[in-house]
Amino acid sequence: MLTLLARIASRAMPALLAAGASTLGAQTDFYNTDRARPLVTEDAVVIERRAFELQLAPLTLTRAAAGAYGWGLAPELAWGLAPRTQLGIALPLAFTDAAGARPRAAIAGAEVELLHQLNAESTTLPAFALGVDALLPVGPLGPARTLTTVRTVLTRTHGWGRLHLNGAWTPGDALAPGDAAVDHAARWSAGLALDHTFALRSTLVGVEATVAEPLVDGADAVWRAGAGLRRQATPRLAVDAGLHRVLGGGSAEWSLTMGAAFAFAPARMPGFPRGAR
């Protein structure tokens, strides 16, 4: 059974990894990029205070070198609970459709994330953010234990666009080779992204390079490259698409991400003055 799950995970979960696996970090517009929306590397700006953002159909399709396809879906909700601070909850789902195997869908953990932006960018200082997230052992494709990851995000804006630097580290013992999360959990990871905005078209394009060392003893670091686009469709809806490829350290694969983010706030939440309606 474990072997079967591991096989499914090995095909499905790289899709989530390419998409950032944990896709928390919602923002309310196209300019404030989220993890995996469209690039794995995100900016250091968190969601507005009191805003909610629902990631609608954040879909990932992965094609492995052997021709196996994996699908990932990671619905999530983020909330700006305090100034420069957001809380997010995600429930990644993984689907596999490998040749010769029965299609399978399963929950691949549950994730809770807190991200705090330390400062707004200024002339001399980039914007910094610190985050911690926990991937809980929920579902057949979830990890065997809670994986806690700390990460840091930096954004620097220039006249031509923005530069983002992300780093993450997961402490604790290495996972067993058969762990369902073995293909997307990383001991450490880093990402560098550049993006450019077409302001009058409310569209952002970006490219990135990432590297991650799997949370398994003896595994090689995996290098990926990606490109993506994010566009504001309506004042409250942003859509995105991204393309990623493994360049080294892992099996050659492509992945495609697509999604939409809807921003809202319940009028009855604390902090909003009550109205007649």
Binding site: T28, R50, P83, A120, A267, G275
Partner: peptide, 13 residues
């Protein structure tokens, strides 16, 4: 240069 200004959502209605 250290500034902690932050954005806030509009009044939902």
């Amino acid at each position: 240069q250290w500034t902690t200004v932050y954005d806030q959502f509009y009044l939902p209605a």
